[in-house]
Design a binder for these strands. Structure first.
Lengths: 364, 364
DNA sequence: CTGTTAGCGCTTTCAA
DNA sequence: TTGAAAGCGCTAACAG
């Protein structure tokens, strides 16, 4: 075996430090590892030797023998999405402060990727995992259950999964959506578009169909749709399937669909958007139709952004506590790692409707 | 030593698989590790045993003996910033495709954090590091040189560091800025604001002061400032320190400063912004002054966004190939890990000025 | 082609 | 208090 296998040039080991200091391996390990008793004298010598050689502990070796890697795994839909980027920042800020680093994997809502990501994290022996899962039904959670049965602490973030008894950090999407739609209703709207709805293979036209698992809603999407329906029900406004967008969840599609809703004989006078790209699409449709908000149409959307505030007029948006969402998830996970493992619960954080100027009464 | 130290419940080792299959450790290791020769027959037995026990290789142990962790370290300013989130996505997409995962650390432009992050990555024995360094002078690169001397391959992204001979992936910030300012000049502007400039302790009023190291420009900021100056020089427009923002780089400050430039007797008729938040601040200042773009003032900014396209009027912006920046950095690093290590070079990617509607001739 | 054996660098008993 | 020695799970010589 080549002498330098596994160690590049100039990476002294604890044995070398011990030799340099003229003490035993264990003594060096104790002082450098910060555990056990060591006389001040030897301690000094070891420290000096370590300093001289530029010693840095090999975290891998340490993890091997302690079984703790001080690394957390994070599985998200898309690290390039501002929402998840914010969540990740929350996670990494708080875990870093407690001495943990993070390995992040994006799934792009692909269940296969999620499974693969889970396996990677298991293999790398992360101490715990935070995951925004795309899993919906019981049939899709096998990989998570497998990880659980291996004793890996897991906390869910952004999306709850009914089939899993796990700590979960979310906002009340249903309530947030209901509140937003209520604002629209209070302003006098009755024809309110919903963008975007489920990307079902075939367009469901009933409430049941819309909410069914087959239409493959993400949990958040389903909740937001329910909130929309709640508000309609409370105001006794009949549900009209023509006012909910279906199909691929893209900005382009949202533009088309809002365009369609705007062209209906009994057209929409307001649109509620469940995501940033949906808002963008709606905005384009409004402009393409030669209309202006909030005069001709009112708008409220999910996921506030600094840009929303500088739009003219500024947009009324739902703000999620992105950083806090991640921070809380990390806190809960770290607590579990610290041995505090009470009942698993769902931690619901508060979102906030930021009222600006994209809502007005419907034009006569 | 407790029997289960380092291994949680139900994590079979290769020895257990070997035992179950009734073969030697090495044979099991060979088939599971995918190296060496194993007869089809034994191979089958091992695979079956592994399957039955739910065996997953311990990547940590593997790394210990091979000296390869299949993990890349990434050090960025702020993972919550859309630019870096995009870069990270590029990095993680391409490294993931080649079997590498990433540990990400944010520094918030704090050199201390950058040093700490570097150490963490050294300790965790990542195979290579990609870093957007805040280091400027020779005095600030010790941590990177230390990592280099330890034999860790490093590639720089987004920011070049003159004191370091490393592969570097950037865009030509100077040229991009020059091009943008030239567009403004071509439209007839001569009083062009620059937001934001260096956050020097005291406001430098000379070109030299502005560009000096003491004013602590990030490399990108310095380059963009140079590009601005280049364009001015080419058009023989005198440089006026009053038109460059100084102080903290925040949206609020940008609002103040653009407000000030707008109120000058010989006020600005166009503003060039070097960052998204600067654009946002400028937009607020314009509105606060009761003005409208591009009629009263023209605007061009760095870092295009989907929002910029739906503004009314849409904003002319400089688009950076964020994903590509990250992807290229990862490719270069992975190539080095693969043994291809030609000369270190600076890879300059193309940015693009996306002409929309925020530039018009100055109003008479 | 297979099994034995010796590490990788660290932690942790255990006896001195 | 300190050092010797075993072990974490895997890879890789080497002998058979």
């Amino acid at each position: 075996m080549p002498a330098d296998r596994g160690q590049a040039a100039g990476r002294p080991t604890i044995s070398e430090v011990a030799a340099e200091a003229g003490v035993g391996r264990a003594t060096a390990a104790r002082t450098l590892g910060g555990y056990g008793y060591v006389s001040p004298e030897l301690r000094e010598r070891v420290l000096a030797a370590a300093q001289k050689l530029g010693y840095r502990a090999n975290a891998l070796a340490r993890s091997m023998s302690t079984g703790v890697s001080h690394t957390l795994g994070v599985i998200l839909a898309d690290i390039g999405n501002p929402f998840f980027a914010g969540v990740l920042r929350g996670i990494s800020d708080t875990s870093r402060a407690r001495g943990f680093d993070t390995i992040v994997l994006s799934t792009y809502e692909e269940l296969d990727e999620e499974v693969a990501a889970t396996n990677v994290l298991i293999d790398k022996r992360v101490d715990g995992v935070i995951i925004a899962s795309a899993a919906i039904g019981r049939a899709e959670v096998a990989h998570i259950k497998a990880a659980m049965s291996r004793g890996i602490p897991i906390v869910l973030v952004d999306r709850a999964v009914a089939a899993l008894d796990l700590d979960t950090v979310v906002i009340d999407n249903r309530d947030a959506a209901r509140e937003a739609v209520e604002v629209l209703i209070a302003a006098g709207h009755r024809r309110i578009g919903f963008v975007w709805g489920p990307s079902a293979p075939e367009t469901p036209t009933t409430r049941r169909g819309l909410l069914s698992e087959k239409s493959r809603n993400l949990w958040t999407d389903g909740e937001r749709l329910r909130g929309y329906l709640d508000a309609l029900d409370d105001a006794r406004i009949p549900f009209d399937p023509e006012l909910v967008m279906t199909g691929p969840k893209t900005e382009e599609r949202a533009t088309e669909e809002v365009g369609r809703m705007l062209a209906l004989p009994d057209h929409v006078t307001a649109v509620f958007c469940t995501e940033t790209d949906a808002v963008l699409g709606a905005l384009r449709a409004v402009r393409a139709a030669g209309l202006a908000y909030p005069r001709d149409i009112s708008l409220i959307g999910f996921d506030d952004s600094a840009w929303a505030a500088v739009m003219d007029p500024p947009l009324t948006m739902i703000e999620q506590p992105v950083h806090r969402l991640g921070a809380k998830a990390a806190e809960v996970l770290l607590d579990i790692l610290h041995g505090n493992e009470p009942e698993h619960e769902i931690h619901t954080l508060r979102s906030r409707l930021v009222a600006r100027s994209s809502v007005a009464p419907p034009s006569a």
